[in-house]
């Protein structure tokens, strides 16, 4: 795989992407001829009204869905051409997800939740443990490692979610409304954390948000409306 940073290529290139959903005979055009480039190390906020296709675009970039038309290239690799099995392996290697509702496994402790993506690697138990400890330390939750999600606050659960997202040191961190379910204080803590990951650890982050306060923390904000991107807010 080519190194996009060294070659000057953007880390994420979305080119001429269209996404059409079918509801019975009806065709719903979510994204239309969309172009987006995200250089490595950028913290990009993606804003737009509900139903504008933000999560759809994030899913395409994260390899959770395929475009109807166009190409999605991440770190030099055409993601839209990969098979389901290849995509699963690719996601495990390159993508960290952070969800609005944290999406933790309620039956696992915080550390076991963080360990989940590492189960797909060939790391030994001791190595996995070390990685989990590092990730939990980065989000400031080492002392809550043995706690189950139900005993954690919303902010803490989201930090566990972020630890799970970064534990494999992915190429790209995709956050879908990471502060959408949190109060302002907890939301700020999460944004501080994402900012630190971007600035101090060079993580490339794409964050979908409704909240201008959250997007202000990003290094760049793009706006999605009616399937098209622009650099200025939608009126």
């Amino acid at each position: 795989m080519s190194n996009p940073t060294n070659s000057g290529e953007p880390l994420v290139r979305v080119d001429g992407v269209e996404k059409v959903f079918h509801r019975g005979a009806e065709e719903i055009h979510i994204l239309a001829q969309l172009h987006l480039e995200v250089p490595a190390g950028e913290f990009l906020a993606l804003m737009g009204p509900s139903g504008s296709g933000k999560s759809t675009l994030l899913n395409l970039i994260g390899g959770l869905d395929r475009p109807t038309k166009g190409t999605v290239t991440i770190a030099g690799e055409r993601v839209d051409q990969l098979s389901d099995r290849q995509l699963a392996a690719w996601r495990a290697r390159h993508i960290g997800f952070v969800f609005q509702l944290y999406n933790l496994m309620p039956v696992l402790t915080a550390e076991r939740n963080v360990e989940l993506p590492l189960l797909l690697t060939h790391l030994s138990r001791a190595e996995r443990k070390k990685h989990v400890e590092t990730a939990l330390a980065m989000v400031g939750l080492s002392h809550r490692a043995k706690h189950f999600p139900r005993t954690l606050s919303g902010g803490e659960q989201q930090r566990v979610g972020i630890a799970r997202g970064i534990v494999t040191d992915p190429t790209l961190l995709l956050c879908d409304e990471p502060t959408g379910d949190l109060d302002r204080k907890a939301g700020d803590e999460i944004l501080n954390l994402l900012q630190a990951l971007n600035r101090e650890h060079g993580k490339t982050i794409i964050m979908v948000t409704h909240d201008p306060h959250a997007s202000a923390r990003a290094s760049r904000t793009v706006y999605l409306n009616k399937g098209q991107l622009s650099n200025v807010p939608v009126a």
């Binding site: 959770l64 392996a89 996601r91 495990a92 797909l120």
Partner: peptide, 10 residues
């Protein structure tokens, strides 16, 4: 979620 983080169908 498991699928999203890379678990395969198998």
């Amino acid at each position: 979620v498991l699928k999203a983080i890379g678990f395969t169908n198998g």
